[in-house]
């Protein structure tokens, strides 16, 4: 009888460790914990070029993460990329004339949206659109422009 009891206890410990490991993988290793605080309000922004922005990319203000990208699609009417953002509910004082820019964290890091607050007294709410946007910097384009202006400068001399 004692033997059966120890075996059952050990199996119980094994299953508990296994579930604890899964729980750790879910909460500590993966992004499940950040899904819980997904509630917030949705806003959209249109960009000429989104570069390497992806769904789930962070949205930050002054470097503090305030939300994430939920969807990206191409708008055929305006020939621009339309990006849906969800902003955490507690950050509800973002002026309507704020501007959104796509930056890269570090030289090779992932791309994120940074929101610069404007001066308006009305605040963004569910379904609004951020009208002032700045596209991602495309390195190839910049190099191309630099080479072009360099070449133009050379011929005028």
């Amino acid at each position: 009888m004692f033997k059966v009891r120890t075996i059952e206890i050990m199996v119980g410990v094994f299953v508990a460790i296994g579930i604890a490991a899964l729980f750790m993988l879910a909460m500590k290793v993966s992004n499940l914990s950040s899904f819980a605080q997904q509630e917030g309000f949705h806003v959209t922004a249109r960009f000429q070029n989104i570069g390497g922005l992806k769904v789930l990319s962070p949205v930050s203000m002054s470097g503090v993460r305030v939300g994430r990208v939920t969807a990206i699609h191409y708008d055929q009417g305006s020939y621009e990329a339309e990006v849906d953002l969800v902003i955490t509910g507690s950050y509800d004082k973002i002026p309507v004339d704020s501007s959104a820019s796509i930056f890269t964290s570090g030289l090779l890091g992932e791309q994120y949206i940074s929101i610069e607050p404007g001066g308006e007294e009305r605040y963004l709410k569910q379904g609004d659109r951020i009208k002032l946007t700045q596209s991602a910097l495309v390195l190839e384009q910049m190099i191309g422009q630099f080479l072009f202006s360099k070449a133009a400068g050379d011929t005028t001399q």
């Binding site: 899964l22 879910a26 993966s30 992004n31 499940l32 950040s34 789930l56």
Partner: peptide
Amino acid sequence: QSRVDFYDDV
């Protein structure tokens, strides 16, 4: 946490 997705990876 930002790179590992619960559904896709775990």
